[in-house]
Structure formats: C-alpha cells, structure tokens
Design a protein around this nucleic acid. Structure first.
Length: 489
RNA sequence: GGCGCGUUCGUCUAGUGGCUUAGGACGCCGCCCUCUCAAGGCGGAGACCACGGGUUCGAAUCCCGUACGCGCUACCA
C-alpha cells in the first residue's frame, strides 16, 4: 500500500533554465508534499547526452530556491535513495532492462536508423493508422542475438508490447483513462549509447525512490501506458498519477519562448517578486473553491489539494501577474521594502549614500500604493533622488500661467518663514498664501507640484515638500521659476 | 492520419441536477473621494455555459455524437 507520507518528485531535464510551466509542476508537487507532511524530491533527468547544458542544474536549483521551493532530497543531498542525477544511475537501468529481457518483456533490437526511417516512410506511404516498430528483431534467434552482441553491433533494448490489451489507469485530475496496447509502440528502453530513455529511467527511479504520486504535465499522459506496462512487467506497485493541464500562450498554443518570457529568471529580472509569481502560477489550474486569490506560500500549502486541479489549459496572462505583484509588494513591511530598494539601487547604479534610511522610508511610505515594481520607486519618483531637469510640457501649458511666477514667489516667502515645517505646516502656509492672493489653492498646487517634481502626477504635494525639506523645495521652486520662464516659447 | 485529453465573460476561475435572471478576480468603462496619479468605495459593459441530440418534472452540471483546440505519435524529455 502507499504509505501515509507521500514522496513526490519534480523531474526536469536540465535544459538551462526553469520554465514557468516547470515551476507550476514543481510547485504543485511541493504543495502536495508539504500539505501531507511528505517529501519533495528533485531528480534530474539528464539521460539525453545531446542536450547537456553546462551549469543547467545549478541554474535550476537556484530558480527553485528563489521561488521558495527547497527540496528535501535531490542533488547534493546524501540520502539512501540517491544519487539524484540519472546519469549517475546507469547500472540500475541496465540491470532492470536485463530482467525484462529474461522475462520476455523486452528484447534486443539491432535495426539501423536507416531501416527505421524506411519503415516509417513505408508505413506513412501506406497510410497505416499507426506508425510503429514492426517487432522485426523480436523474432531473432538466441544464436543470432548472441552473434550480433559478440560482433559488437550497435543495439537498443525495446519494450515488448502485446497486442489487443486494454491498458487502464486512474488519474487524479482526469479520472479513468483507457488505451489499447495496439496504439503503444515497442518503445526503446535502453538507447544505443547505453543510456536509458525517459520511460525506463522514470519508472525505475520512481520505484526505487519509493515515489507515491507522479505529478507531471499533461504531455506525459500519452506515454503513461508504457509506464503502466513497465510497472506490471516488473510486478511493482504503481504510483498514483496526476497529469496537470498545460500553460498556454495568449493564442492558446503551448506556452513557448517565441511569444514571451518563459524562464523564471526572466520574471526575476523584470522585477517580479517570487511571492507574486508563485501565487499567480498556483492559480493557473487550481483554486480552493472560494473567492480567495491572494495567497502566500503557507496558505497555499494549507489549502492545496490535487482533487481541485482543473483539467483544461490556462493562458499565462501578464495583467494578473502585474496586479498580484503590486498586491504582494504592498503587503511587505516597510523595512523589507527598504532592503529591496537598496538592492535595486545597486543594480541601477544609483548612489545611495546621500540618502538616509529615514529619508527612504518616507519615500516608501508615500509611493507604496503607486508602484507595481520596485524599480518604479526610481522611474516614477526620480525627483526624490535628484532635482528635475525638465518639466512636463503638457502640465506647463495647462497650469503655468503668466501670473504663476509672482504667486509662487509669494509662496516661497511663506515657506521661507517656516521653522522646521511638518507636512501640515506647508499646507497651512499654502492655504494662507492662496487666501491672501485671493485665488483657489489649485492655482498654487499644480504649478508647485510641477516645480518640485517636474511631473504632474505623484504623491500629494505636501508629502513631497515635507520629504524634500524646506530648503530643497524652495531651491527647486526658484530653479523652476527661472527655467520655465526661459524655456517657455 | 492515429491515439489521448480538453471546451463557463477578453483572461484566470466558481459551479458536482433545482439555491443561478450563471458568482468572483484581473483588465476595460463610469461615478464618488480628491491638489494630480494611485489606492479605496460604488456601479457598468462583458458568457445564447463550443454545437447538436438525448436522460429527467427540471441540466452549465449526467449520456451520446459533432466541431474546434491542444498533447503524444523519436535511440527528446
């Protein structure tokens, strides 16, 4: 029987980066494991030597870690179930393939790629419903096989699939799925180079590593009959299967590089929080059955269940990711944002020495509700870090009247008289000035905003004034008075 | 072509036979708040539940068929 504590694995091939679809698969495995007090295992399926990518594993592990998915067993962990790289487990696959040959459930095949190509062509020409290997080498005599082996002929080992058998298995997401063995090819189990194919390796390792639940992408559903056959031939207990729906491009094709970013590191570079990415990806194919959409990892672990995974593919929609990012950003304590801000400044090569934590914290306080990404603290409120050197033309046209300079000068006088002003003091001074001049406050506020920030949008002006301080504010107003007069016309 | 899987607002989804004139979220539009922009509050447009047949007193929900989409069809995973 399946033990109470599940053991699940995320088994990517190391292609060089973590695909967001892979992240979703990894996440569901992780959530399922943690929800049930089980183990989350990372196994590297590196049995294709042609696809070897230097540093791919480190990159994969790094991306998983960034997302908060730490594995219990995997590369680098010394556990009795290791090693966790399939390229280091070759002896297992060979041993078990031999066992299958002895049982008559697999056989040597010496067919050349040329013959296989020709066979396939022929089958296509005849419009045969299913292109399959013709079991040519199954009928080799023991002597012929030994002779070929002695001669060192290149060979593979194939699965011996019996005709006219129903292959039925249960899938948590899809229910009962049924195949006819006539549609299952005599799959290569061990390749010419001695490496196993995915099909053999994944079954052997899942068994050896005592994997209880195979949670993987829907693209594997069609080859699951081969795996079921292998479990049966070995007389091993089958794991429980759960095939996840695919992640799609906006045009509903399988999510691909061509139509946008697919690597987790791309989203990291763009400034997304791991919390937001994880939250977003979790909701692509799963929900708890209620209206909740904002989750942190702990809540996901608590609520997740495979039974509530959807069947149909989900489009990866950036709009919602953006929204979640702003929500998660807003959720962060100010002190944490301060650290993010400093890190971002380093990345953008902005000199931060002149700005105290206290100053930055004030900026965070007023900008928090206005940013989706950390870097927007700089792109949207650059004026906190340097005086504006240009002023929005549309705002000049709209709010900078001929009487404005005189009015702003009066305002400067009022500001200059203030002693260590708080936000409210600036506001009071402005109100009084407006009353004295007998004009509406807006006549002062809009040009003022433009003068101190160069922009027509942003936090409240009095917040800006307070953060900038009296002297800097007055200096900027004077500069604007000078520049806008000159630049005008 | 064969086999398999899927199909509820533009997108993510709720819905497991009567509670549904199909609910929420993102996005979009409008109003309120307001010094601007956000945030927030309120409201709106937006889904003949792919289509066609059944079953049932009653179906988005069960069954069958069709269409469309996607996946697999390698000595790739």
């Amino acid at each position: 029987m399946i033990s109470e504590k599940p053991r699940v694995r995320f088994a990517p091939s190391p292609t060089g980066y973590l695909h967001v679809g892979g992240l979703r698969t990894a996440l569901y495995n992780y959530l399922f494991a943690k929800h049930n007090n089980g183990k989350f295992i990372l196994r590297i399926e590196d049995t294709d030597r042609n696809r070897f990518v230097e540093g791919a594993i480190d990159n994969l592990v790094e991306s998983l870690k960034w997302c908060g998915l730490e594995y219990d067993e995997g590369p680098g962990s010394s556990d009795k179930f290791g090693p966790y790289l399939q390229s280091q487990r070759l002896h297992y696959y060979k041993t078990f393939a031999d066992e299958l040959i002895e049982k008559g459930k697999a056989y040597y095949c010496f067919c050349t790629p040329e013959r296989l190509d020709k066979l396939r062509e022929e089958q296509q020409r005849l419009k045969l419903p299913q292109a399959k290997y013709d079991k040519h080498c199954l009928h080799l005599s023991k002597n012929e096989i030994d002779e070929n082996l002695h001669k060192g002929l290149s060979h593979v080992i194939r699965l011996n699939v019996e005709a006219d058998k129903k292959i039925i298995f249960n899938d948590i997401v899809r229910g009962q799925v049924e195949f006819n063995s006539n549609n299952v090819d005599d799959q290569v189990l061990i390749k010419g180079d001695g490496y196993p194919t995915y099909h053999l390796a994944n079954v052997v390792d899942d068994h050896l590593m005592q994997i209880t639940h195979v949670i993987r992408g829907e693209e594997w559903l069609s080859s699951t009959p081969k795996h079921v056959l292998l479990y049966d031939f070995f007389e091993w207990e089958k794991p429980i299967f759960a095939h996840l729906p695919l992640l799609l491009n906006p045009d509903r094709t399988k999510l691909s590089k061509r139509q946008g970013d697919v690597a987790v590191e791309d989203y990291r570079k763009k400034g997304f929080l791991p919390d937001a990415l994880v939250n977003f990806v979790a909701l692509l194919g799963w929900n708890a059955g209620d209206d909740k959409e904002f989750y942190n990892m702990d809540e996901l672990v608590e609520k997740f269940s495979l039974e509530r995974v959807n069947k149909s593919g989900a489009v990866f929609d950036l709009e919602k990711l953006n929204w979640l990012n702003s929500e998660h950003l807003r959720q962060k304590p100010d002190l944490e944002l301060l650290q993010f801000l400093k890190k971002e400044a380093q990345k953008l090569n902005i000199n931060f020495q002149d700005f105290s934590d206290d100053y930055l914290l004030k900026i965070i306080n007023v900008m928090k509700e206005r940013v989706i990404f950390i870097n927007e603290y700089f792109t949207k409120s650059k004026f906190f870090f340097e005086a504006p050197n240009a002023y929005e033309q549309a705002a000049i046209d709209k709010n900078w009247k001929s009487e404005t300079p005189d009015e702003l000068n009066k305002l400067c006088e009022a500001f200059a008289a203030l002693m260590d002003p708080a936000k409210e003091d600036f506001e009071k001074a402005l109100t009084i000035t407006a009353e004295t001049l007998n004009i509406g406050k807006g006549k002062l506020i809009h040009p003022l905003r433009l003068a101190v920030s160069g922009l027509s949008v942003g936090p409240g002006v009095f917040d800006i004034l307070f953060i900038l301080g009296k002297n800097e504010s007055i200096k900027r107003i004077k500069t604007a008075l000078h520049k806008i007069k000159k630049d005008d016309h």
